[in-house]
Design a protein around this nucleic acid. Structure first.
Length: 215
DNA sequence: CCCTGATTCGC
DNA sequence: GCGAATCAGG
């Protein structure tokens, strides 16, 4: 297989949409993720936008000590004539609205985007992007027994980060995602379930139990 | 061990 | 130009 215009176009589009190299490779077929990454670099469309608006590469040492041979040299020019020591303006403008980091089927199509958020003037709540969290039942839907069990487990939880989750670790989130004090349970899962025994007890309840508890 | 992108270098 | 191998990291 070769990089036909069409395949390159697909590559550019998906990369721009935030798809990973392996996802693109799977979509294209007949190529590995390495091939995709290599092509991405050759096309010079590395350095994807980062949420913080920061440069993707920010080294501590910025010496004129570049690589010997002329590399791809696809680094974006820096339009920074001067720097302000202590200036804290708004976040750098972002051209793109940052597409959803989703990787659903290619044919998926959002039909209607609801309205934008309310015009709360000075409220600037940070909503962490990411996958939808597991259900967080309101207190009145949790049985006292299950709640107590979960509380006990959370005190002994492994407190894993997102990247540390596996098929064998409980994925129950604890705390506020917008806070450093956020972690996942991480206890051994009940086989086949995404959660440990205690959290399965909260996540999966008989409909009748929920109905009876609801006001 | 799963995954990610980055880089190198023989082809 | 291409991409496997390798590297570096979450």
């Amino acid at each position: 297989m070769s990089w036909t215009d069409e395949r390159v176009e697909t590559l550019k589009r998906m990369w721009g949409e935030g798809a990973s190299a392996s996802q693109i490779a799977k979509e294209l077929g007949q190529v590995t993720r390495n091939a995709v990454i290599g092509k991405v670099h050759r096309l010079g469309l590395s350095n994807r936008v980062t949420p913080g608006g920061e440069r993707a590469e920010e080294g501590e040492e910025a010496l004129p000590e570049a690589s010997a041979a002329a590399p791809s040299a696809a680094r974006a020019a820096e339009p920074e004539p001067e720097e302000d020591a202590d200036d804290e303006p708004e976040a750098p403008a972002q051209a793109e609205p940052e597409p959803e980091p989703e990787a659903v089927a290619a044919e998926a199509e959002d039909e209607e985007e609801p309205e934008e958020e309310a015009p709360a003037p000075f409220r600037r709540q940070i909503i962490p992007a990411g996958q939808p969290l597991p259900p967080q039942p309101s207190a009145n839907e949790i049985s006292p027994e299950a709640q107590a069990a979960a509380l006990a487990v959370e005190k002994a939880a492994k407190r894993l980060s997102l990247m540390e989750l596996t098929e064998k670790t409980c994925k129950w989130p604890v705390g506020d995602p917008a806070t450093p004090n956020f972690w996942f349970c991480g206890m051994p899962v009940q086989s086949g379930k995404p959660y440990c025994e205690a959290h399965v007890g909260i996540a999966f309840q008989p409909m009748s139990a929920r109905r009876d508890r609801r006001r």
